[in-house]
Design a protein around this nucleic acid. Structure first.
Lengths: 146, 146
DNA sequence: TATTGTTATACTCTATAACTATA
DNA sequence: TATAGTTATAGAGTATAACAATA
């Protein structure tokens, strides 16, 4: 990687293809191995709420589901005590959804289980391999954050 | 990365966590952005059939769904002309499910769309970034192939 | 009697459309 | 009139249990 010429389009496409496949395979395996009593989309919403309170609309937008679906999901989370609903300070139409301590606990447990599978497999990595993976992760985070 | 001491367990766990998250997010985005008129599990079954004919039981086993669910999925694929049902040569209880030309075409189209999304986003990568991602992909392939 | 596959039934998640309340 | 959220209703996917046909 010391030249200034860019890799060809087909070489880049090939790397993209391999990357996509390996990401999908890892994702599938992780979901498989770590099934908990909370469905995936509940955990996903809790993860968003863990970074700060959100309105149902915002959650629906970021999760790419309809508003009624998010209403249902939020209701289920509140029912289980994993989240709570509050009033918006100025706009009475809006609802502010926040994560509870129980929600954070479930999130931690879920993450621990999901991490377990991958961590065990990454335990044999050398520091160099870990560094490559860490840097790749940073790069890919930029891609999905776009 | 020039010392000989291994990174701490928590540092490794943190990298594993970030990696898992970004893989799941990429996987999700790819599926979302490349949504075709065939649901994900249909495409997945077609991908298996593309490697050879299978019985409904075998498909249910490999897809980790119940037999009735696979009956339904196969029925939908046959209905759309993407797969066809045949007789087993010796065992009349069994059904042999095969992919059709239309099924292969849909599979090719789906794969092309999935690649397209990620390829476009990786188009702005420098060669160095691409190399990091390529090496990380190799490492991760070893992980899922275990 | 065991196995392969289907049908019956119910539950969950999702979406669109219609409705309520606030702005 | 527009926006935030809910409720009503319907569609798709899944599972367990019961059944039919074949081995």
């Amino acid at each position: 990687m010391s030249t200034s010429t860019r890799l060809s389009g087909s070489a880049r496409a090939h790397i993209a293809n391999d990357l996509r496949l390996v990401c999908m395979r890892i994702s599938r395996r992780v979901r498989f191995e770590s099934a908990l009593d909370a469905p995936p989309h509940h955990v996903s919403v809790l993860a968003h709420l863990d970074r700060g309170s959100r309105s149902p609309s915002e959650l629906a937008e970021v999760e790419k589901v309809s508003a009624p679906s998010m209403t249902r999901t939020v209701a289920a989370l509140v029912e289980r005590g994993l989240a709570e609903r509050g009033e918006h300070p100025t706009d009475k139409r809006q609802v502010v959804v926040s994560i509870t301590a129980a929600g954070r606990a479930l999130l931690a447990e879920t993450r621990a289980r999901r991490d377990a599978w991958l961590s065990v497999r990454m335990d044999g990595f050398t520091d160099e391999e870990l560094e490559v993976v860490r840097r790749a992760t940073e790069i890919l985070e930029r891609v999905v954050d776009e």
